[in-house]
Structure formats: structure tokens, C-alpha cells
């Protein structure tokens, strides 16, 4: 069958991203975004975090998390613009913005994480 719609694969990325975000983002955001800055818990020192980040498994997991989260955002944001603001006539521009943003963000994540 010669139908090559990207929709199923984008949906798989969206779903995988939704699952990854649901499982991992709450604790990471709570610790680094709220608990450490407010002093509820003492922030880990630099050497410990650097050693964690230098572990290849951490790099791969974090890169995967960033990529999937960004594609998750792209998919949801695209449909929010379509439906919430009724902008479906701008669908090409919106798709470029959303998925282009996700690709650019993933490249940036790769550069940051794998240079550590």
C-alpha cells in the first residue's frame, strides 16, 4: 500500500513522550525546580551531579527523554493551535513550527548532553 502518512509515527513519538514525561518529569521538576531552589532539600554538590551526567546511560536516557518530550509537545501544541484557536488553515506553518522546533531542540539536547 503506497500510503505514507507521517501521522502514525508522529503519534507513536507523542505517545512515547507522554509516557516518558508522565513517569520522569514530575520528580525531576520537583527536585531541581522547586525543592533545591527553596532549600527544602540540600542540593547535591557539583561533583556528584557531574559524575551522574558523565555516565553514558544517563546521557542516553536524558537525550531520549528530551527528544520524546519535545515531540510530545510538538504534537499536542499543533492540535491545540488547530482546535483551540481554530487555525487549521495555517496547518503547514504550524507543523513546521512544532516539529521543526522539536527537531532543533533535540539536536540542541544532543549537543549539550554528549559534550559533557
Amino acid at each position: 500500500m503506497a500510503r505514507r502518512s507521517p501521522e502514525p509515527l508522529l503519534w507513536l513519538l507523542f505517545s512515547a513522550g507522554g509516557m516518558a514525561a508522565a513517569l520522569l518529569v514530575p520528580i525531576l521538576l520537583f527536585l531541581f525546580g522547586i525543592a533545591f531552589p527553596l532549600g527544602w532539600l540540600s542540593a547535591p554538590d557539583h561533583t556528584h551531579l557531574l559524575s551522574v551526567l558523565r555516565h553514558p546511560a544517563t546521557k542516553v536516557i536524558l537525550f531520549g527523554l528530551c527528544l520524546l518530550c519535545l515531540f510530545h509537545w510538538a504534537h499536542r501544541f499543533r492540535y491545540t493551535l488547530y482546535d483551540g484557536l481554530q487555525l487549521k488553515n495555517l496547518s503547514l506553518a504550524i507543523s513546521l513550527l512544532c516539529y521543526g522546533g522539536a527537531v532543533a531542540g533535540s539536536v540542541a539536547a544532543g549537543v549539550v548532553l554528549f559534550r559533557i
Partner: peptide, 20 residues
Amino acid sequence: YKLTAATRSLKDLLWPWGQR
């Protein structure tokens, strides 16, 4: 159905010479 269709597309992509 989304899950069925998506799994199928993934199979087609990774295994294009497989059964249709």
C-alpha cells in the same frame, strides 16, 4: 485503532519487505 495503525506503520517502516 490508533495503536493498531501506528504499530502497523512501524512494522512497515522497519520491515518493508514483510507481509503487506
